[in-house]
């Protein structure tokens, strides 16, 4: 069944995340990061940063950091078991550090299909703000297989 395009423009329930040095330490370990500004408070302070630096792709992790990260697909009646991550992109405006509270405010910007509906695409664009200032745009394309 094709997803109803009436959902284009739907707002995603907003959420807020404060990245922690603890989680960023594990992220750095998992991804083989060796630059201590990404996992060591003292090194970040020495580099003049207010906290360890949030790495480029961690904005996706924070966007997913909510009880039901794919709530918007559930609202559309999608089977999450048939979901794939198709594309992911970011536009960066300001650096972000551990301890800074971020607000995630998303909207569904497109829904389309290919191969006669065998693949459906749901596009979500999220504005990430710190105290009202835009720090990052997060653009995600999820694919739902028939």
């Amino acid at each position: 069944m094709l997803i109803d395009k009436k959902h284009i423009g739907m707002k995603v329930p907003p959420h807020s995340v404060t990245p922690t040095a603890w989680q960023l330490k594990w992220f750095a370990k998992a991804t083989g990061e060796t630059n201590p500004i990404y996992f060591d408070d003292a090194a970040a302070a020495q580099a003049g940063l207010p906290g360890v630096l949030v790495p480029p792709t961690f904005f996706f992790c924070m966007d997913m950091d909510k009880d039901h990260p794919f709530d918007y697909l559930e609202t559309m009646g999608c089977d999450l078991g048939k979901m794939l991550h198709g594309e992911q992109s970011f536009v960066y405006h300001k650096p972000v550090h551990a301890g800074e509270k971020l607000d995630f405010d998303g909207v569904i910007t497109d829904i389309y299909d290919k191969k006669n509906g065998a693949l459906q695409f749901v596009v979500k664009d999220v504005k990430v703000r710190r105290q009202g200032e835009l720090v990052c745009d997060v653009h995600s394309v999820m694919v739902i297989r028939a």
Binding site: T31, N35, P55, P56, T57, Q88, F90, V91, P95
Partner: peptide, 18 residues
């Protein structure tokens, strides 16, 4: 992302998509 930040400071990255 690590490939990029090993080459330039992260603040130089304007956009990144995959």
């Amino acid at each position: 992302g690590r490939l990029l930040t090993q080459w330039v400071p992260q603040a130089a990255i304007r956009s990144f998509g995959v």
